[in-house]
């Protein structure tokens, strides 16, 4: 749609963002700074950082590369809402259960 007149620069912009975040994640995983090793909401603080950065990457891939950010509002939410609601709920409930199963062993 809008891309027909747009050049290629936005593609490379997204590429550098994705590459930058991945490099940062790998560096963080190798260094493991002490201040991120504390526990928070059932897991290490560093893992929360990884998950947030992953979601940022996912957003760029879906909204820009897959063009969903530029589709009609109805299509956008039809695709995003089931994922945004169901997947975190599934994770919450099953991981809670996993922690319980650990305690019961």
């Amino acid at each position: 749609m809008a891309n027909e007149t747009k050049g290629n620069w936005w593609i490379w912009k997204v590429f550098w963002i994705l590459l930058g975040i991945t490099t940062f994640e790998v560096a963080l995983g190798m260094i493991k700074p002490d201040f991120l090793m504390g526990e928070f909401l059932g897991t290490k603080l560093i893992n929360h950082v990884f998950i947030i950065l992953t979601l940022v990457k996912a957003a760029y891939i879906v909204l820009e590369f897959m063009h969903l950010g530029h589709e009609t509002k109805g299509l956008k939410w039809t695709i995003l809402l089931p994922a945004i609601i169901l997947i975190p709920y599934l994770f919450f409930i099953i991981l809670t259960e996993g922690g319980y199963a650990y305690m019961m062993m």
Binding site: L75, I79, A83, L86, F91, I94, L95, E97, G98, Y102
Partner: peptide, 29 residues
């Protein structure tokens, strides 16, 4: 549209796998 609907189902499938991984990892931590 159909490709998007397929991808949603596929995303839920992979979520199921990863969440199962998470369960086992928590249980046998």
């Amino acid at each position: 549209l159909m490709m998007w609907f397929f991808l949603i189902t596929d995303a839920l499938t992979f979520s199921g796998f990863l969440v199962a991984y998470g369960f086992s990892r928590f249980k046998f931590q």
